[in-house]
Design a protein around this nucleic acid. Structure first.
Lengths: 122, 122
DNA sequence: ACACTGCTTTGAGATTCGTCGAATCAGTGA
DNA sequence: TCACTGATTCGACGAATCTCAAAGCAGTGT
């Protein structure tokens, strides 16, 4: 039950659009909760760099990659590679376990699925 | 044909692992192209903020939202909301068209699909 | 114990980002 | 034309980010 008027009056503020009042703008569609938005934004931020996108793509193709190859693959120093790996780890997108001298990383499929779900139309 | 050795020698550099040589580490799995990584990282960067995640989620639930509601929804000034909308627009994730006084935004489903595909296991 | 290698952390510099007030542009209606 | 409102852009500030060299930690093998 949505009454459409001419554009004479301003669109009612979202807070008032619950009632059957003059509206012309759009569905209420409240914003998502702060916590959810922050959590999702954190994951996106973890992927918001070409070096980290490259790392993730490597892990998606090989399901396990030695940290010793990361620096060369992204064209940065080992320290920088380690920094990016930490950001991906902190975001929960990848995990690494040490086996002797080397550390092997792989993706966390559930976390990637969470991102995909957030980008899917209702 | 992958020969596995003891951990006496270091893992061969990725550039040498194409050949049937001593390897113990992981599949070659070259990094993705610079251009693709930068393009994807750009889209992730566009979503790397809670305000922009909220905006996107609103658009996913309502397929059209008036810019006049964005500021209230994200709890920021109109100038800040416009700034975030511009970043999402520049990334190609949303488009807005003006209808008289107001501007209505909606998502670009193909671009969201591109992100989802990049996060999918091979 | 020692040396050696891989990985991570620390510290510092340059750059980018988020935010808002103020100014500007766009469209409506008197 | 003028006044008014919505939306965007500009200017500036503090906060966060990216990068590397250098130092520190972890494991291996002598």
């Amino acid at each position: 039950m949505t009454t459409v008027t001419t554009s004479l009056e301003a669109p009612a503020p979202a807070s008032a659009r619950q009632l059957p009042v003059l509206t012309i703008c759009c569905a209420p569609s409240a914003a998502m909760a702060d916590d959810d938005a922050a959590s999702l934004a954190g994951m996106f931020k973890a992927l918001a760099d070409p070096a980290r996108v490259k790392i993730l793509s490597m892990l998606l193709n090989a399901d396990e990659v030695c940290a010793c190859d990361m620096a060369d693959a992204i064209g940065k120093t080992a320290a920088t590679a380690s920094h990016h790996l930490k950001l991906l780890r902190d975001a929960g997108l990848i995990i690494g376990d040490r086996r002797g001298t080397w550390v092997y990383y792989r993706v966390v499929p559930e976390r990637l699925a969470a991102i995909r779900d957030a980008l899917t139309l209702a």
